[in-house]
Design a protein around this nucleic acid. Sequence first.
DNA 1: CCCACCGTCAACCGTTCGGTTGAACCCAGG
DNA 2: CCTGGGTTCAACCGAACGGTTGACGGTGGG
Lengths: 215, 215
Amino acid sequence: MTPLRIRVLLVDDHRMFRAGVRALLEGEPDLEVVGETGDGEGAIRLTAELRPGVVLMDLRLAGEGGGMDGVEATRRILTTTPGAAVVVLTSYGTEADVVRAMTAGARGYVLKAGAPDELFQAVRTAAGGGVGLAPDAAARVVSRLTNPEPVLTEREVEVIRLVARGLSNRAIATSLFLTEATIKTHLVRLYRKLGADNRVGAVSEAVRRGLVELH
Amino acid sequence: MTPLRIRVLLVDDHRMFRAGVRALLEGEPDLEVVGETGDGEGAIRLTAELRPGVVLMDLRLAGEGGGMDGVEATRRILTTTPGAAVVVLTSYGTEADVVRAMTAGARGYVLKAGAPDELFQAVRTAAGGGVGLAPDAAARVVSRLTNPEPVLTEREVEVIRLVARGLSNRAIATSLFLTEATIKTHLVRLYRKLGADNRVGAVSEAVRRGLVELH
DNA sequence: CCCACCGTCAACCGTTCGGTTGAACCCAGG
DNA sequence: CCTGGGTTCAACCGAACGGTTGACGGTGGG
């Protein structure tokens, strides 16, 4: 039998982490790292060029120029290279993160806090056409399906993001070409959905859920 | 000559990252990983037991039980094992982070975004009794010394942390056994020091500077 | 077709916030 | 000794926020 190894592309903005994972994967006889990059653009390009069996993707890509995150990169990879298998490998696994990544078309989700074996298994599963979720991530997906937390509408997310930047209601209104009254209505609904009773608490909760990034 | 290798202890809450760095360090003939742990307590204990030449320490330790961060762990390690050489290896390198770590007694600061060689060199330097700063971190220390940004007092940090939790001025006042007037005075100074003009902006800036952690 | 939901806005209310001025106390350092 | 910084508080003001009620149009699913 031919020793066909699974060809892996690493996408992570931490060079040190890439080097570590590379060394880790090289220890597995059936895995092979064929490339690595630190930003979304590189990921899209290298996936098209190298046609890796699996793309290992971090969600937070601190790309200086632009700021595409891992979910966006995953989406674009799947449009330019439809057959690609993307496995998310990231630090935090909030429900919002997992759901966003999986709906974007990821074929796996592994936490950096997990054991190396979880990563190996997820890579092999994804390369075989399956979907591999680490236990932690899987639990969150299940809990999300059984106990759906209120989802913010697009407009509400837009508003809470501006609130997070410290804008006043009036400033948000002019920024979105609306009235202050409308902003207040959105805020009241945001407070209810986020379980807060003022704007700071709402921002804090939104950040915790991964809906907003500060700065 | 005896091939005495530098004995390294890994401290990072991401098991996957530990495995990766271990594989990376094992590739260097003069380096040797003698232990690893994911929380501060383990770091203190293992440093005392194993007496490693260098402790590689992440700043963010998501310890479920307790919540000691890397700086606190570093401080405690240096009290229980005075001779220890701690090198910080972390994701973010804000000025506040670098300064806090170095004043806690760290002998090096390396960013995960950096090249593996930076890590190797910092470890060797620290083991030799020196202080190794990666270029990025060093630049921030210098910029901090040349252009000192306003430092918040203890009380101010205390206040901004409660603000970040969504507490009202009145709630903060009762929480700290003060009057609302005092809280407002602190806030006005906080706005000036943080370059904000309302509480949300102040929290956002405080988070950016690493002074406050959300949730 | 109609209901539900989203998004928009108005008017009104009490509360809180943002900001200023002024003042008092303590403590460490020159 | 006394100057400066940190901390505490008071009184005051206008502006912004938090919340409610009610309303209207659009859109999509049952």
